[in-house]
């Protein structure tokens, strides 16, 4: 009874779908006692899948007669290589694997958005229901990148790397000088400090929030489309709403294919650009 009552209520439906499977529900904006299990499990599963595929490809790498999968992998690596070559003055050993990881992992996590919104949550609810769990308290969010922790976690890593590259290329004094004399010269030191700090902080924030916003919005639109026939019984209206839902779903899916690829690509390129800027010495400026 409670399931159908909850399913018919649009607000409850959406809220249910936007709640993570967690150790406990967070009580404040930053609650470090909470672990979102679904985010960790799905991102780890996707990462494992990618590494599994990579290992499969790696088992029979061929110089003259590459398999189709190997060709795809080579294409992706070449693609990332090109991006790095374009903006990185002195590529090191970290930037390549970092950029490739960002691209394939974020793309894989984004791609979870293409699964029907109710598929995995319903399955999960059904499975737990067998063990007597209350369906209204079984939560599952399958897209790790619709979670701030994931996107800001990646962005935080990039931020730390930006600091490290700056220290490595410019030295502590050089980095300090950048804060003091950039962008307005030596007569505006207080303004420069504020401006540069904002600039540096904006990099990881925009990086993380952009990915989160795009994917969260995409997920939400899928949920809204799902609302069209939510809890509907067999009636005349269904003949109008159901085809409409299919069409809208298809249209948004096609558009979203572009969005998830683009967002993964943007995250990668900005990572490379930010680190390239940090790696550039004063002479390169």
């Amino acid at each position: 009874m409670s399931e159908s009552a909850q399913a018919a209520d649009p607000v409850a439906y959406i809220q249910h779908h936007l709640t993570n499977w967690s150790t406990s529900q967070p009580k404040s904006i930053a609650d470090f006692n909470v672990l979102h299990l679904d985010v960790i499990i799905f991102s780890a599963l996707l990462g494992g899948l990618l590494i599994f595929i990579a290992k499969k490809i790696g088992e029979n790498l061929s110089l003259d007669n590459p398999s189709k999968l190997q060709s795809v992998a080579e294409m992706v690596v070449e693609f990332v290589n090109d991006q790095i070559k374009n903006v990185f003055p002195h590529p090191d050993k970290l930037i390549g694997p970092l950029a490739l990881t960002v691209f394939v992992w974020v793309l894989a996590m984004n791609a979870m958005d293409l699964l029907p919104v109710d598929l995995l949550p319903s399955l999960w609810t059904g499975i737990l229901g067998l063990f007597g769990a209350d369906p209204s308290h079984v939560y599952l969010k399958v897209v790790p990148t619709t979670n701030l922790d994931t996107t800001l976690g990646l962005a935080l890593c990039v931020f730390v790397l930006i600091l490290a590259y700056n220290f490595k290329s410019k030295g502590p004094m050089g980095y300090l000088k950048m804060f003091l004399f950039h962008p307005f010269g030596k007569f505006f030191i207080p303004v420069n400090i504020v401006m540069t700090t904002i600039e540096e902080l904006a990099k990881p924030l925009s990086l993380g929030l952009r990915l989160f916003g795009n994917l969260f919005a995409g997920e939400l639109v899928f949920l809204l489309i799902a609302l069209l026939t939510l809890g509907a019984g067999f009636s005349f209206g269904l003949f109008i709403w159901f085809p409409m839902q299919v069409l809208l779903d298809l249209a948004w899916l096609l558009f979203h294919l572009l969005v998830i690829t683009l967002q993964a690509f943007i995250f990668m390129v900005l990572t490379i650009v930010y680190l390239g800027m940090a790696d550039a010495t004063a002479d390169d400026h």
């Binding site: 904006i29 006692n33 672990l35 991102s43 979670n147 922790d149 994931t150």
Partner: peptide
Amino acid sequence: NITLTLIAQ
């Protein structure tokens, strides 16, 4: 919200 998941990620 920001949670411990961030560190995990």
